[in-house]
């Protein structure tokens, strides 16, 4: 054996490439296809009923918000003095209209778009901030860790909603979707930093990090190429749950008057909080936006749970 294939014995172990190794005798015999970890995770997610329900639901809402306006040409901004507070089903107003004659269906479509914009702005700010702070604290440890985490602890001693209220009350010019996304993002990274730090504290003790160190990899390379990919599961789950929280927080802020409250600004939260005042007199303004918001948040939460199960199937006790 050794004389016929010397390279097998002298070389190191076969590299663990994803996909089927070419001509692997054992594989052919048992008919097993090797799957990379990513493939397994995606597969588990696709087989997860909860996660897929959420994905379908979210896709439907996104279609409604972004493709809907292409099919339904009524402008939300256009007011009609002759059709104020008409009930659903009135000609030209499938879901009714509000007190100044704006079409609710068009409003919902725009609201979904704006809410997504808020989430996007929030993520663009909070995700890098939280990742960076958490990664630096968890990787370098010592005084960096303790000072950064004490700071996070200190900020978290005041309920997040209250911090947002106090900050937002000083910037009336930020009462737009982008502005609310900005404020949410500036204070929404704290829990991500804690999560990433916790993950890094355990991950950095692993052998592969030591190996990367021994090979002379820089700190930057270890953080971005080795540690973050391995902490990806918790980060993605945070993204989904934080997106859902951001939508709810935006709605709450708007309800209290510190959110999307500028004259022409729209968001789902704005529609919901405007509708609350009309709960008994014009119920369509109350129910439709509320249900739309509920569906989006529900969908995102379901996706988050599906992803969590896909990354960590152990707590399910079901073979994937």
């Amino acid at each position: 054996m050794a004389s016929t294939k010397p390279q097998d014995t002298t070389g190191s172990a076969v590299p663990a490439e994803p996909g089927a190794p070419a001509g692997g005798g054992v594989d052919r015999e048992f008919g097993i296809r090797a799957r990379s970890q990513r493939q397994q995770i995606v597969r588990r997610f696709l087989h997860n009923k909860v996660g897929m329900t959420g994905l379908v639901l979210l896709a439907a809402m996104l279609l409604f918000g972004f493709v809907g306006p292409l099919l339904y040409s009524t402008e939300y901004a256009s007011q009609n003095r002759n059709a104020q507070s008409v009930s659903p089903g009135t000609a030209g107003y499938p879901l009714g209209s509000d007190a100044i004659g704006r079409d609710l269906l068009a409003g919902l479509m725009q609201g979904v778009q704006r809410t997504l914009l808020i989430v996007a702005v929030f993520m663009v700010i909070a995700l890098p901030l939280g990742l960076l702070v958490g990664a630096v604290a968890g990787y370098f440890g010592r005084w960096v860790d303790s000072s950064l985490m004490r700071l996070v602890d200190l900020i978290l001693t005041v309920p997040l909603l209250v911090v947002l209220i106090v900050v937002a009350s000083n910037f009336p010019e930020l009462r737009t979707p982008q502005g609310v996304g900005l404020i949410l993002g500036l204070f929404g990274w704290l829990d991500l930093a804690r999560i990433v730090r916790g993950q890094f504290l355990t991950l950095r003790e692993k052998e592969y990090v030591e190996a990367a160190h021994a090979l002379g990899a820089s700190d930057k390379r270890i953080i971005f190429k080795h540690l973050i990919p391995n902490a990806l599961g918790s980060i993605i789950v945070w993204v989904t749950l934080a997106a859902a929280t951001a939508i709810i927080l935006e709605a709450s802020l708007t309800y209290l008057g510190f959110g999307v409250n500028q004259a022409n600004a729209t968001s789902l939260g704005r529609l919901v909080s405007d509708g609350v005042q009309a709960a008994s007199t014009r119920p369509w303004l109350f129910y439709f936006p509320g249900i739309a918001l509920l569906l989006i948040v529900l969908a995102i939460n379901l996706i988050g749970d599906g992803i969590r199960d896909a990354f960590d199937p152990s707590n399910r006790r079901v073979r994937a």
Binding site: A244, A251, S252, G269, V276, A279, L294, V297, L298, N301
Partner: peptide, 18 residues
């Protein structure tokens, strides 16, 4: 539980009132 987690407080409270 999923429904309750996804609800904004004030909307749910208004529902209760109503």
């Amino acid at each position: 539980a999923y429904l309750l987690i996804a609800l904004p407080t004030f909307w749910f409270a208004a529902l209760l009132k109503e």
